[in-house]
Simulated scan of single mutants.
Amino acid sequence: MAVSPKAQGKNIGWLLGQAAIYSAKDLGASKIYLESNTILKPAINLYYKLGFNKIVGHSTPYKRCNIQMELQLKD
């Protein structure tokens, strides 16, 4: 997920995140998993605000990935 620099600071990332969460719920997903890099501090903060939690233990093919997060949608 990315927001153009010209559009940043206008809650578009929050709205995109919410739309993705609602869509995943509508599709019956039990969780959402993402991989990122902690150098992207605004993105990581957004993910925490959306309810994601840091997890560990998953292998990844992405060398730049240094954080994995998950949002539980169903108990």
Rank of each mutant, 00 (worst) to 15 (best):
M1P: 03
A2C: 13
A2D: 02
V3I: 14
S4F: 11
S4E: 12
P5M: 09
K6G: 03
Q8K: 09
G9D: 06
N11W: 15
N11P: 06
W14R: 15
W14L: 15
L15P: 00
L15E: 14
L15H: 13
Q18N: 14
Q18V: 13
A19P: 04
A19Q: 13
A19R: 14
A20D: 11
I21W: 13
I21S: 14
I21C: 14
Y22Q: 14
Y22N: 15
A24D: 08
D26I: 00
D26W: 04
G28E: 10
G28M: 11
A29L: 10
K31A: 12
I32R: 06
I32Q: 06
Y33P: 02
Y33V: 12
L34G: 07
E35A: 00
E35P: 01
E35R: 02
N37E: 06
N37A: 10
L40C: 01
P42D: 04
A43N: 06
N45C: 07
L46N: 06
Y47W: 11
Y47D: 01
Y47Q: 04
Y48P: 00
K49D: 12
K49W: 01
L50K: 06
L50P: 06
G51V: 07
F52G: 00
F52I: 02
N53E: 13
K54C: 02
V56R: 12
G57Q: 03
S59V: 02
S59Q: 05
T60I: 03
P61V: 09
Y62Q: 04
Y62D: 10
K63R: 11
R64Y: 09
C65R: 07
C65F: 03
N66T: 04
N66G: 07
Q68T: 14
M69Q: 09
L71R: 11
